[in-house]
Design a protein around this nucleic acid. Sequence first.
RNA 1: AUGCUUGUCGAAAGCGAUUACUGGCGCUAGCCCUUGGGCUAGGCGCGAGAGGAAAGUCCGGGCAGCAAAGGAUACGGCAGUGGCUAACGGCCACCAGGGGCGACCCUAGGGAAAGUGCCGCAGAAACUAGACUACCGACUCUGGUCGGAAAAGGUGAAAAGAGUGGGGUAAGAGCCCACAGUUGGCUUUGGCGACAAAGUCAAGAGGUAAACCCUGCCGGCUGCAAGGAGAACUACAUGAAUAUGGCUAUCCGCCAGUAGUUCGAUCACCGCUGGAGCAUGUUGGCAACAUCAUGCCUAGAUAGAUAAUCGCAAUAGAGUAUGACUAAUAUCAUGCUUGAACAGAACCCGGCUUAUCCGACAAGCCCAUAC
RNA 2: GGCCUCGUCGUCUAGUGGUUAGGACGUCUGGUUCUCAUCCAGAAAAUCGCGGGUUCGACUCCCGCAGGGAUCA
Length: 115
Amino acid sequence: MLSQQYRFHARGGVQYVYRHGRSVRGKLVSLTFMPNTRGKTRLAVVVSKKVAKSAVSRNRIRRRVYAAIQPLLPELTGPLDAIFTIYSPEVLTIDFTDLAQTIRSLLTDARMLPH
RNA sequence: AUGCUUGUCGAAAGCGAUUACUGGCGCUAGCCCUUGGGCUAGGCGCGAGAGGAAAGUCCGGGCAGCAAAGGAUACGGCAGUGGCUAACGGCCACCAGGGGCGACCCUAGGGAAAGUGCCGCAGAAACUAGACUACCGACUCUGGUCGGAAAAGGUGAAAAGAGUGGGGUAAGAGCCCACAGUUGGCUUUGGCGACAAAGUCAAGAGGUAAACCCUGCCGGCUGCAAGGAGAACUACAUGAAUAUGGCUAUCCGCCAGUAGUUCGAUCACCGCUGGAGCAUGUUGGCAACAUCAUGCCUAGAUAGAUAAUCGCAAUAGAGUAUGACUAAUAUCAUGCUUGAACAGAACCCGGCUUAUCCGACAAGCCCAUAC
RNA sequence: GGCCUCGUCGUCUAGUGGUUAGGACGUCUGGUUCUCAUCCAGAAAAUCGCGGGUUCGACUCCCGCAGGGAUCA
């Protein structure tokens, strides 16, 4: 899991990012992001009920994505709000190294990671 | 017993490594001031961290608000009897009916003898009976017509709703008689009771109440997104008649001065987890359950914690092949393949329902027959 | 988390317990036309979301599941 300081806490924040942020699309996951003025980077993972019916599967997807981001946290540039939207239930089953690779390339495309 | 029945309990199954999360308690760092506190989601240590269904939200309760938590109607729910319980549509025991060789299982199980509705098609007729064929009698132009009859045929889910034998008759019929059976009333006996048994009197009454309805019992409404916060000023009204609003869908009854403007609280904090609590034992009870004693503290998140990843062994089990043994396809041995299900607390409890890999224990049944 | 609601041919919809279910649009076939559209005639197309129960009989009544859609700060 992510520490609380990296999470969103208010209801409106995620919707604001969806409306005003720029996005980078991947095959299984997309990234929506925008700079913020809080001085801290915030991250969120969105898994819709259409992707996975059971709450157990959705929780597991979220935890895997969080775990993939975890080692990259110190490298991230600038205070940003970022949301990962999951499209496919394959995230539950694919190899963890592949998942980590897709997350890393998404962050690189968004210029949140230096090359 | 390898075949069955019932109940109770457990529920990712090992070892290691790396990286993380959320509360609680203790210690501690920096900053601020009134030396005792506050702030910085600071740091370190100790200990804790999903379920039997946490699920569906189908019932019941606690709790909170609706100014008191009232009455009647409407509306909704429940339905054998007795008990248990905070309460229940739940549980236990029993009764009745049905199923099984049996252990045992199933039942939406009040009233159709209060009233109304419905019973399509077929059939003569579908519930105040009725006459198509066949039966009997009379008449006859020999084609039939009128009358009797509810026993036979055919139709239908159901045919007037008491079977067998005898009498009776033009032909027949509970029309009459005997025996058997059904339903209801009354009496006696047993039982707290549903009910059972015996006796006696009477009767002929189709089905459907998960159709309306009747009878009895229960329910005020809204739900933790409940609720916890209002204050000041201005205008009108003036002491409760009317109007308006609220409790409430309607009436009674009860309560409240009304409207506007400004400020403030609320992405925070409280509610929020110690409870009809859990474990062991005692006593009472057939049991559900209750009493008492001792011990214990056992999640509290909020874009939502309780985990993610890797490596090694591969356990239980499942599938399959060969062999041994056998009445047997059971069991045993070895090899190969596979490798734990359903599922995530969201105010809290008691149930029900549904999903589910497997395992353990207890009490029973059939009696050699079974893939 | 709470509360409410919906479902019938491909789509939109009718449907007293008595029909394996009616209509419109669309689809297909034939006709009309030099051809297409329009128009005319005909046909196919539905496990009434799923599983039980009540009833002689269920799309309809009752119970239980599985889905879709709204709403409450």
